[in-house]
Amino acid sequence: MMQEVVPFKKFKTETEQTGAALVTILTAEHEISVREQIETAAGTLIAFYFYNSRGLYKLIYTIVAKNGTVQAYAEPDGILSTLLKGPDQQPWVSIIPYHPDKELEISVPLFQPGLTEIPKGKRPFPGQFICQVNQSAVFYDVDIWSDLKPDRLLNIELCCRILSYA
C-alpha cells in the first residue's frame, strides 16, 4: 500500500497582484528544481525537488490556487514523478517507488493512494502526459537529438481496484 503525501511547509510564499496577473512566489533557503506542472480544478499542480543544505532533496507537490494560496505535500516514497489526470480528472502521479533492486514506475492517485491496490510496475517511460482518454493516460515522447528515432506514444490504463472507502 502506498503512503499518503504529507503536508510540507518549509518554504516562504508571497503573493503580488501585478497589472497582468496575480503572481505567487515560492522562496526556499537553498534550491527548488521544478519537474513539471499541470492544471487541476484546485489550481496549478507543480512537482519539484526541494533541496536541503547537504544537496539532498525531497519530491514536493504544490497546488497554487487561482487566488494565490499554496498547499504543499511531500512524497514519502518515490522519485521522478510525472503528473497526469485520472479518469475522474483528479491528479494522479506516475512515480518510481524506492526499491533497492529494481526501478519500476507505477501510476496511482496523488491523494489517497492507499485506497487503491498498487499496480504492477512497468519500465519507466520518458514521455510527457498529453491527455486522458476514458480510463487511460496518454504520454508522448520525441527524441529531439535524433532524426532517426520515431516519436512514441504510450497508453497507460489507470484502473486501480479500490481497497476501501474513507
Rank of each mutant, 00 (worst) to 15 (best):
V34F: 11
Q90N: 07
G127W: 02
T18F: 10
L22I: 15
L45M: 12
E4Y: 14
L153Y: 15
P87N: 13
H30L: 04
D141A: 01
F139W: 04
A137G: 10
K58I: 09
P97K: 14
P100Q: 10
W92Y: 15
R123D: 11
G114S: 00
Q89L: 03
P124H: 13
I38S: 05
Y165I: 02
K66W: 12
D77V: 01
S94L: 02
T27V: 12
N155D: 09
K85F: 00
Q128Y: 12
K12T: 06
T40Y: 14
Y61I: 09
Y165V: 00
P91F: 02
A28G: 06
I38A: 04
S136G: 04
Q135W: 09
Y49F: 06
E14Q: 05
W145G: 07
Q3E: 15
W145P: 00
W145R: 01
F48S: 00
E103R: 07
E117K: 08
V6F: 12
E39G: 04
A21Y: 06
Q135E: 14
V5A: 06
G86K: 00
I79N: 04
T13F: 03
L163F: 10
L83H: 06
K9P: 01
P124Y: 13
T27Y: 11
L45W: 05
L56F: 15
V6P: 11
Y57V: 00
I162C: 07
A65E: 14
P76F: 09
G78S: 09
T18L: 06
C131P: 06
L115V: 15
I25C: 06
L158Y: 12
T40A: 05
L163V: 13
R161D: 11
G55S: 14
Q71H: 10
T116M: 02
A47E: 04
K9Q: 13
G43Q: 11
L104N: 15
E14K: 05
D141V: 10
R35C: 03
E31Q: 09
G86R: 01
T18H: 06
F111T: 02
E157Y: 04
P91I: 04
E75K: 02
Y57Q: 01
F50L: 01
Q112S: 08
P124E: 08
R152G: 03
S164T: 13
V142K: 05
K58D: 08
A41K: 06
Y73P: 00
H99D: 14
L84M: 07
K122F: 09
H99G: 11
Q71A: 05
T27P: 05
I60A: 01
D147V: 11
V142A: 13
F50Y: 11
P7W: 09
E16K: 05
K66C: 14
I38K: 00
Q135V: 10
D143W: 07
A42Y: 09
A166V: 07
V64E: 06
E103A: 00
I162H: 07
L115D: 14
D147E: 11
F48R: 00
I106F: 10
F8L: 05
S81V: 09
L115R: 14
V133F: 07
A65G: 14
F50N: 02
T69K: 10
Q132E: 06
E39W: 08
R54H: 08
H30P: 05
V108A: 09
I32G: 02
I32T: 05
I95G: 03
